[in-house]
Simulated scan of single mutants.
Amino acid sequence: MSTWRKAQQLAAEQGIDALLITPGADLRYLTGYVALPLERLTCLVLPAHGEPTLVVPALERHAAEASGVEMDIATWGETDDPFALVASLVGDATVVGLDDHMWASRVFALGEAIPTADQVLAGSLVQQLRIRKDAVEVEALRQAGLAIDRVHLRVHEWLRPGRTEREVGADIARAIIDEGHETVDFVIVGSGPNGASPHHELSDRVIEAGDPVVVDIGGTMPSGYCSDSTRNYLAGGTPDPLYLEAYAVLEEAQRVQLEHARPGVTAESIDAVGRRIIADAGFGDLFMHRTGHGIGQETHEEPYIVEGNDLVLEEGMAFSIEPGIYHDGRFGARIEDIVVCTADGLEVLNNTPRGLVSL
């Protein structure tokens, strides 16, 4: 069964008369069309009963057809009202579900065009489908993991004292493409004290001998599925003894989390088992973020591996396990792997060395 038919069934079950999905990961998931989020409206109209229609600007019809969309395509011209076109396709719907990332201007325009319909968020509905990857999706994530692993295995070519984070990052970005990704989504090269900022990207700081360096990288493959992996490097010299102590704790925490994660356990329990190890070693206040996030056609999606999320994991759920320790002004470290729940266990999709790599 196609993904859009599954979404259609869920909409009917939840009392939603039609789903309205604009460009983004949900649209790509449901149609296969990678539409650019431009000023001209593109919108999937998916009724709970009946056939879907993809509304696109006339000048983008060929792009939509070339993507292999298997549904009716309705076009609108430069002087047409695309929201009126959507309203005509929705008909007498009284509840319409909007994708979570729809632009506010379009939410208001659709509200004016379909004044008799209540608007509800449909993101959680689509996530019910996206959160469980099928065999084809798992293979796509597996290939993404292999591709980003190949980049990490080449970091020694570029990371050395005397170069800036930005210079190293530019080389890594080129390699992400060379190793099979379609786009570069992010490159973090956090050297020395910059590693203590989990979302540090690149700066003009010159890497020094003895610096620990956090390298967190990811991209999107031609399949539409994402990679994300973090490894830690030592740029020569002698590291801070406290860093080595913290890193050993971090390795143990992630090892235990990988052993614990499997179908039948809760998302929050994975966070808890690793956080307890880090806290018992005296670094609890330095682990400032959740343990992980789901991954698929977006780098961050459900399920989130965090305290308070009592979701029971199931086969096909894919997510990161990435505990970290961050000593402000001194150093940071994070070890990240993408994993997927199998029928009775866990497959780890990143398999480069997790220990500190001395260059």
Rank of each mutant, 00 (worst) to 15 (best):
M1D: 04
W4K: 00
A7Q: 11
Q14F: 07
I16E: 10
D17F: 08
D17Y: 09
P23E: 09
P23C: 01
G24L: 07
A25Y: 02
L30M: 09
Y33R: 04
P37C: 02
L38E: 11
L44F: 13
V45M: 08
L46F: 09
L46N: 08
A48H: 14
P57T: 00
L59V: 13
R61C: 08
H62F: 09
A63K: 14
G68C: 12
V69P: 05
W76S: 11
W76D: 10
G77L: 14
D81M: 08
S88R: 15
G91N: 12
D92E: 15
A93W: 03
V95G: 02
G97W: 05
M102P: 06
W103P: 10
S105G: 10
S105A: 14
R106C: 01
F108D: 14
F108C: 03
G111Q: 02
E112V: 03
I114Q: 09
T116I: 11
V120L: 08
A122K: 11
L125D: 04
Q128I: 07
I131G: 04
E137F: 14
V138S: 06
A140G: 10
L141S: 01
A144H: 09
A147F: 02
D149T: 14
D149K: 01
R154G: 08
V155Y: 08
V155S: 08
V155L: 12
W158C: 12
G162W: 11
E165K: 12
E165W: 13
V168K: 00
R174T: 06
T183S: 09
V187G: 00
N194Y: 09
N194F: 08
N194V: 04
E201Q: 15
L202V: 13
S203L: 06
S203K: 03
E208T: 06
D211A: 12
P212Y: 08
V213G: 00
I217V: 15
G218D: 00
P222C: 05
S223N: 05
Y225D: 11
Y225L: 11
C226P: 02
S229T: 14
R231G: 10
N232A: 05
A235G: 06
G236I: 15
D240T: 00
Q257S: 07
H260Y: 13
R262E: 04
R262W: 09
P263W: 00
V265A: 04
A267P: 03
R275D: 09
R275S: 12
R276H: 13
I277R: 13
I278G: 00
I278Y: 03
G284P: 04
D285A: 14
H289A: 05
T291Y: 08
H293D: 10
G296C: 01
E302D: 15
P303C: 02
Y304G: 04
G308L: 05
G308V: 02
N309P: 03
D310C: 05
V312K: 12
L313N: 07
E315L: 01
E315P: 03
M317N: 06
A318D: 11
I321H: 01
E322R: 15
E322V: 01
P323G: 06
G324W: 02
R334I: 09
R334K: 13
R334M: 12
I335G: 01
E336Q: 14
I338D: 01
I338S: 06
I338H: 06
V339R: 00
T342Y: 06
A343F: 02
A343N: 04
L346S: 03
L349Y: 01
N351Q: 08
N351S: 13
P353W: 07
R354F: 00
R354Q: 06
G355T: 10
L356N: 03
V357F: 07
